[in-house]
Design a protein around this nucleic acid. Structure first.
Length: 252
DNA sequence: GCGACAG
DNA sequence: ATCTTGTCGC
């Protein structure tokens, strides 16, 4: 981040504070309260992939999978030009606009395939100001959203301490969790061992219109591998798109 | 100078 | 995010 962005950051902080008023941190859907999520048929995933030396071009991806079978129902890849830089804590201002575009396009062209919940690559409530990308996207789309981060964000007193490492060691099987507790005492998310074959947990937090407990159990039920299938598919397909449409060149 | 820094 | 292939193991 260069300097002279302090003005921008202050504006973005105000925007997060404003959008946060509309955040819903509880279950709002009937399927969320049912035993095995009966009534849930479509889960979505979004992601962006980049070309090595290019800061502004990206492939935005939306996939919709069937639940619980995780079969592909819809997919859309689109090249986009990002208008904001990446600044830690403000990922949404860079990535949310193109992802919202994809959702609007789906709503226009295939409304019956709109996902009932969206998995987002990044944090939700587990964030500097408790309003990460998954919350931002959730509020603006009004879709239930779950935030899933692959790396621990060290904020609000949560850190990679010896205690944290020992908690990770204590995750013995898929589905095991431990809470991510802020210095304030509030639980901002859960570390989840998502598969038996991976020791490294993923970090789940509330995005919008879903409780943390529901978010964690749903995430677990969507994991064939470490990363929940909707995000994994979005990631793989957006990279595949770049490979075929923008093959690496020797120059540059 | 060193470590952090979602993606 | 991206830079990067093969390799060891189940």
């Amino acid at each position: 981040m260069g300097d002279g962005d302090e003005e921008l950051v202050r504006r973005w902080e105000r925007e997060q504070e404003c959008l946060k008023q509309r955040l819903v941190e509880e279950d709002t859907e009937a399927w969320q309260k049912n035993p095995n999520f009966s009534g849930l048929h479509r889960v979505g995933g979004v992601d962006l992939s980049f070309i090595k030396g290019d800061e502004v071009s990206a492939c935005a991806q939306l996939v919709v999978l069937s639940y619980p079978d995780m079969e592909l129902l819809y997919e859309c890849s689109e090249m986009v030009t990002l208008s904001a830089p990446y600044i830690a804590g403000f990922l949404a201002f860079r990535e949310a606009p193109p992802l919202l575009q994809l959702l609007q396009r789906l709503e226009r062209e295939q409304p019956s395939l709109m996902p009932q919940v969206l998995f987002v690559d990044g944090n939700g409530l587990f964030h500097y100001r408790e309003f990460g990308l998954a919350c931002h996207l959730g509020v603006l789309s009004d879709l239930p959203c779950v935030g899933v981060a692959k790396n621990l964000l060290q904020v609000q007193g949560v850190a990679k301490t010896d205690e944290h490492l020992s908690q990770i060691s204590a995750l013995k099987k898929a589905g095991d969790t431990f809470p991510l507790t802020a210095a304030s005492g509030r639980t901002l998310g859960q570390a989840l061992r998502s598969s038996n074959s991976s020791t490294k947990p993923i970090y789940v937090s509330v995005g919008h219109r879903i409780s943390l407990d529901t978010a964690v159990h749903l995430t677990h039920s969507c994991c064939r591998y470490r990363v929940p299938e909707p995000i994994r598919q979005a990631d793989m397909r957006s990279r595949e798109y770049l490979r075929t449409h923008f093959p690496p060149t020797s120059s540059e």
